[in-house]
Design a protein around this nucleic acid. Structure first.
Length: 344
DNA sequence: TCTGGGGTCCTAGGACCC
DNA sequence: TCTGGGGTCCTAGGACCC
């Protein structure tokens, strides 16, 4: 038997969950994002396939989505519900003889040993469908990177295999941002070097890439283009590096006293969410986004690292960080984040 | 297209030390 | 007194992903 990685990715997950509990919405353009009011500041979390036909995409401002499709149904994000459904799906995946790595609400990697990976992918689909009523797509690969890209080709409701054998044929001519990890900024910088396709990137000298992108990222970009990936599927959840809370205000804040009050509120919310036996805090960082969209962060070390007993400490540290900002400009967003002590 | 909220990881540059 | 080079640590910001 051979080793494969299956990347399981639920189809239009959030929209599908909403349609499940509002069956009358089936077949309609559904957009989930913000508090469900498309007149407010917020972006699209997920759009149903019907809504995507109007050009609505994840990350798009709700106002824009409403302009593109005024008759779409707009719903608020319900994280608690998606978490429950996600747990159900992951529970089903863990029944398979596989190492299961949860990679988000709606996706997971399965490390499997089999000679029939596509059949196993189809079986995963059937089990998820029968257990939850949701469709997923499955990418079959000889490593995590290839399986992840393969699931994109599998959508919707399909199984697709991408390995060393067909990598060049499938990927070679595609633009570099078809690769996981390359977004619009990196694609633009690569284009400045004359590199536009996956094939071209794979043939680019690592030294040139290192000069442009740094000693780690440069060589990593070239490896991405060849489909190489030695990272392992791991069943152990990773230790979180930090935790934060932020909020964009419907109207920019212009009164510094109000800014202080809102920051305090965010710090208290964050304190409430932190487990009392969690890791110790090594750093507190405050983020301010001034209108129109300039984002500045200022932080400070917590010396010695603090545990959760001194809860009010986060508020105090955040307030001290805020002193480093010039609050004469209108504030669009405030955030507080704690970073945990690294055990190594 | 007036741009959320939750994260992760990497890089550049300054401080500091010898 | 105009000033090297290497190493380490820390901070702020950038890029990306879901």
């Amino acid at each position: 038997m051979s080793s494969f990685v299956l990347h399981v990715d639920l189809d239009e997950f959030i929209a599908a969950v909403e349609v499940q509990r509002h069956p009358e919405l089936a077949g309609k353009p559904v957009v989930v994002g913000g508090d469900g009011d498309p007149a407010k500041r917020g972006v699209v979390s997920t759009a149903s396939y019907e809504a995507r036909r109007f050009g609505i995409r994840s990350g798009m401002p709700l106002r824009t989505a409403a302009k593109r499709c005024p008759e779409a149904v707009f719903l608020p994000v319900d994280e608690a519900r998606y978490g429950e459904v996600s747990d159900d799906v992951m529970g089903l995946l863990r029944r398979f003889p596989a190492i299961v790595e949860v990679a988000g609400w709606d996706e997971a990697y399965l490390a499997v040993k089999t000679d029939e990976p596509e059949a196993m992918g189809a079986e995963v689909q059937r089990v998820v469908r029968e257990g939850t009523g949701l469709w997923c797509s499955v990418g079959v690969g000889d490593n995590k990177l290839r399986s992840k890209i393969a699931s994109g080709f599998a959508k919707p409701r399909g199984v697709f295999t991408l390995t060393r054998a067909n990598w060049n044929e499938i990927m070679g001519g595609l633009p570099v941002d078809a690769l996981w990890g390359i977004g619009s900024k990196t694609a633009r910088k690569l284009a400045e070097l004359g590199v536009r396709t996956v094939e071209q990137l794979a043939a680019t000298d690592e030294g040139i890439l290192a000069g442009r992108f740094g000693p780690n990222i440069g060589p990593w970009l070239r490896r991405l283009a060849t489909g190489e990936d030695r990272s392992m599927v791991t069943g152990r959840p990773r230790e979180p590096r930090g935790k934060g809370r932020e909020r964009t205000f419907q109207q920019d804040l212009t009164d510094p006293a109000e800014v202080h009050g809102e920051l305090n509120r965010l710090a208290r919310e964050l304190e409430r969410e932190l487990a009392s036996d969690g890791p110790r805090i090594a750093r507190v960082v405050v983020k301010v986004r001034f209108a129109p969209f300039d984002t500045i962060t200022r932080g400070m070390r917590v010396q010695p690292p603090a545990d959760w007993k001194g809860r009010e400490a986060i508020e105090n540290f955040a307030a001290r960080c805020l002193e480093q900002f010039d609050l004469r400009r209108p504030v669009r967003l405030l955030g507080v984040r704690v970073e945990f002590e690294r055990s190594e």
